[in-house]
Amino acid sequence: MSREIDSREIDKLDEPQALPTTARLSLGLTGAAIPTREQLRFQLDHALARDAVHTLLDIPALLHGLQQRGRAGFVLRSAIEGESRQKGRHLYLRRPDLGRTLHPDFAQALRDYAASTPEKPDVAFILVDGLSALAIERHALPLLDALLPTLDDHSSLAPICIVSQGRVAIGDEIGHLLGAKLVVLMIGERPGLSSPDSLGVYITWNPLPGRTDAERNCVSNIRQEGLSYNDAAQRIAFYMKEARRLETTGIALKETSAPESSRVSD
């Protein structure tokens, strides 16, 4: 039998909070186990992440926020629609394909809108709950506030779409139906243990159903402890400008001097 690891023989790290990491270090040992305080901290973080996944988007609050900013909102739902609220969330987790498609009624509504609006928009902003409605509720409007003033005044914007039970690729269908040249889609990212409200932004030129993630650019980890609104806005504005200049997004745009971009995930 080998000797057990003994906590009494391990010296504490000097100022662990000063280290450039949020890893759960120096947790201590009781027997072989994690002591109670750290055990419960983990459980609370997991509870927050779980609740974030299952929280449903507060659409009236978002519409109200847009109205205060003098912006029109267009409410859409994915093909998950038709199920009860919580059942819908469980279906959403099992069927990513349905989350990438608009419900037919809402696709029709969008088609009708586009038919009644002769001028095609340059940019469509789309807010999608994704895996964290909390991320959209906390960060989408402040990020728009930081981003919109930096954009070229001449570009025309579609009404801001709000989508529930959606995934990243639903932006392709929406952008296509609107006839938009560029889609900027904000979505709640999969909650991490210490980041229940992380927002991701995907920029796609010439949106069409069937686009792959390689054809998008992504700015992720937008949250209080992560990327700030101003930094995120700067990167997004950069991608939007480059997308218009090169008439493409994705890999072709990646090698430029953009501030570091992140992994694509959905």
């Binding site: 890893a23 759960r24 947790l27």
Partner: peptide, 27 residues
């Protein structure tokens, strides 16, 4: 993984402690 929390890949795996538990439990 420190405290089972992978802060890069954003998922939960097993901790250093989990391995100690298993070694102790099953010899």
């Amino acid at each position: 993984v420190p405290g089972a929390d992978d802060i890069m890949l954003n998922y939960q795996s097993t901790s250093f402690h989990d391995a100690l538990y298993l070694r102790r439990l099953l010899g």
